[in-house]
Design a binder for these strands. Structure first.
Ligand SMILES: [Mn+2]
Ligand SMILES: [Mn+2]
Ligand SMILES: [Zn+2]
Ligand SMILES: [Zn+2]
Lengths: 128, 128
DNA sequence: TTCATATTTGTAATCAATACATTATTTTGT
DNA sequence: ACAAAATAATGTATTGATTACAAATATGAA
């Protein structure tokens, strides 16, 4: 599987799930969706797996939703938008320029998250 | 208190606490620190208060720490840094330029968060 | 095969956050 | 000032995401 992770069945399936479902799901959603395919799967394994995958840099861990952590199979940093109405998380496909300005704080930075919140296009149209 | 919030004792004290303690505390910390001064305070009141203050725009609600929500008495948006070693949250005092580029996604955006994570200056020095 | 290691599983525990009912305080109208 | 209504605070119970932990299973090297 690369990233120095042994490609067990749950790990491969979680990784594939995240690559195929670009919805930024949480652990519970991943678990429920994979259970039919892997009946022996336990939720703890999903927790273990996303933990491992994210610490190795294979997936992104999002804290945009304060209810629970969400995950993204695309590990290149990119901005996200959370709709406060429907709860969906969208990708925003531009590269934030802010990342570059970090020289003068002397912390060692290894992660950047850019989060936007508001009402999504779809919800706006329903409200008209 | 302005922001259309009736200035009850707990509300004033929570607001003052956040203005005086620039540590981005969570509810439990606010509660424990104010309890000696307001012995009747309940944690539910602190939850209610930060909820009210943040929805009125008087304080910032941070989701940088996946364990719990943290709060900031400075309500102007500014970037934050979380140290993965010691857990401290620092202000980064530059204005991110990324915010401006949001035209072409047609969502209605009312909140922007820019979060950095890594190892803070202090922890780096201890490790030497 | 055998042993050591890594992984998975299931259950129990933790703990932040919320729900809700009760009490207290403040405001409004008289 | 008084009564009624509205708002706020409190305490307890509950929810629900996440973690801890121990037992079972699978993997890989020797
Ligand atoms: Mn994404
Ligand atoms: Mn701050
Ligand atoms: Zn929406
Ligand atoms: Zn630190």
């Amino acid at each position: 599987m690369a990233y120095g992770i042994r490609p067990s069945l749950p790990r491969v399936e979680v990784m594939l799930y995240l690559l195929e479902h670009r919805t930024h799901p949480n652990v519970d959603t991943i678990y429920k969706d994979l259970l039919p395919k892997i009946p022996s799967l336990s939720k703890t394994t999903v927790y273990n797996t996303v933990q491992r995958l994210s610490e190795k840099g294979a997936i992104l861990r999002l804290t945009i939703d304060e209810k629970n952590v969400c995950f993204d199979g695309i590990s290149e940093p990119h901005p996200h938008f959370l709709c406060k109405k429907c709860g969906k998380i969208y990708d925003l496909n531009f590269v934030p320029k802010a990342n570059i300005q970090l020289d003068f704080s002397e912390h060692l930075i290894d992660e950047v998250s850019l989060y936007y919140r508001g009402i999504c296009k779809e919800c706006l149209e329903k409200m008209k």
